[in-house]
Simulated assay, not measured.
Amino acid sequence: MYVFRRIFLMFPIIAFCISASADEIPIGWIGPLTGNSAVLGVDSVKTISMVFGKVNSKGGIGGRKLRLVAEDDQYQTAKSLTAYRKLVAVDGARFIFVITYGGLFALADAAERDKVILVDPLDCDEKIAALNKYVLCVAKTTESLGTIAAERAVRDNHLPAAIAYLEGDPFPKVTAEHAKDRLVKLGAEPVIFEGYQSGASDFRALIGRMKKAGAKSLFMYGYDE
């Protein structure tokens, strides 16, 4: 219900930024639908499609139906840029959901130039807030994903803790750093803080280091590992 409510709150903005002469409203979506990070995108598209279906069944927005145009970028920034250009130039989208964290930053300047609204429905942090007025976020703060886990570990005495994060992607590292910072402030510095490569599937060495360090919990920030 919370996710539905966040999307519904976007409708006044959608109506404002779309030409009144359009028979339908193309809404763009950029994110991973295939690859290691597909778990982030598949459910997002399903949820937004369900919401749009409900709105369209009641006449749409101002008599215009919403049409979701989803582009798979496999959570790769370069592909986010290609998807953005296609959505704006070919599909005429003036409002685009962006799931890929790094892609959001890469697209910010183009969105300001083109006067296209970008919305991140998954992440919200100070770095996103510092971008231009055409970039919005409607999610819980990214920081909270790390701080809440840290506070829970301290509360339930799952200490000492180890933290591992996916390298090459800003989102997992940012979240991991917030978890580490919160643990340190609570007097429970993690015994392990390290990154791992995309595609990794054998974590026996990490588990061995955890056992040696006496870790009782693992914060793992990635996707489908």
Score class of each variant (00 low, 15 high):
residue 189 E to T: 14
residue 196 Y to A: 04
residue 195 G to K: 04
residue 112 E to K: 15
residue 35 G to P: 09
residue 167 E to D: 14
residue 33 L to H: 09
residue 207 I to K: 11
residue 162 A to M: 03
residue 211 K to A: 13
residue 222 G to Y: 06
residue 111 A to F: 06
residue 195 G to E: 11
residue 145 L to P: 03
residue 17 C to R: 10
residue 109 D to S: 13
residue 211 K to H: 12
residue 204 R to T: 08
residue 143 E to Q: 14
residue 98 V to M: 04
residue 154 V to W: 09
residue 26 P to A: 00
residue 57 S to Y: 07
residue 206 L to D: 01
residue 93 A to K: 05
residue 222 G to N: 06
residue 209 R to F: 00
residue 100 T to A: 10
residue 223 Y to M: 14
residue 165 Y to S: 00
residue 134 Y to P: 06
residue 113 R to W: 11
residue 35 G to T: 08
residue 201 S to P: 04
residue 179 A to C: 11
residue 109 D to E: 14
residue 177 E to P: 09
residue 195 G to C: 12
residue 210 M to R: 10
residue 65 K to R: 09
residue 18 I to N: 14
residue 162 A to W: 00
residue 27 I to D: 01
residue 87 L to E: 01
residue 85 R to M: 12
residue 163 I to E: 11
residue 110 A to M: 11
residue 56 N to C: 01
residue 17 C to P: 00
residue 149 A to Y: 09
residue 217 S to V: 01
residue 152 R to N: 12
residue 3 V to K: 13
residue 189 E to C: 06
residue 77 T to K: 03
residue 74 Q to K: 10
residue 82 T to G: 05
residue 76 Q to M: 11
residue 45 V to K: 09
residue 64 R to G: 01
residue 5 R to Y: 13
residue 159 L to H: 08
residue 186 L to C: 07
residue 71 E to L: 03
residue 47 T to Q: 13
residue 171 F to D: 07
residue 157 N to F: 07
residue 224 D to G: 11
residue 221 Y to N: 03
residue 52 F to T: 08
residue 146 G to L: 05
residue 97 F to N: 13
residue 141 T to R: 04
residue 218 L to C: 03
residue 122 L to C: 09
residue 135 V to Y: 08
residue 216 K to R: 10
residue 199 G to W: 01
residue 113 R to Q: 15
residue 105 F to A: 08
residue 222 G to T: 08
residue 189 E to S: 14
residue 19 S to F: 11
residue 80 S to G: 12
residue 80 S to T: 06
residue 225 E to P: 15
residue 221 Y to S: 04
residue 163 I to H: 07
residue 126 E to G: 02
residue 83 A to D: 04
residue 64 R to N: 04
residue 181 D to W: 15
residue 133 K to Q: 15
residue 222 G to I: 02
residue 43 D to T: 11
residue 65 K to D: 09
residue 93 A to M: 01
residue 179 A to E: 10
residue 32 P to F: 05
residue 94 R to K: 13
residue 96 I to G: 06
residue 180 K to L: 14
residue 193 F to E: 02
residue 54 K to S: 13
residue 100 T to H: 14
residue 198 S to H: 11
residue 120 D to M: 00
residue 115 K to F: 07
residue 136 L to I: 11
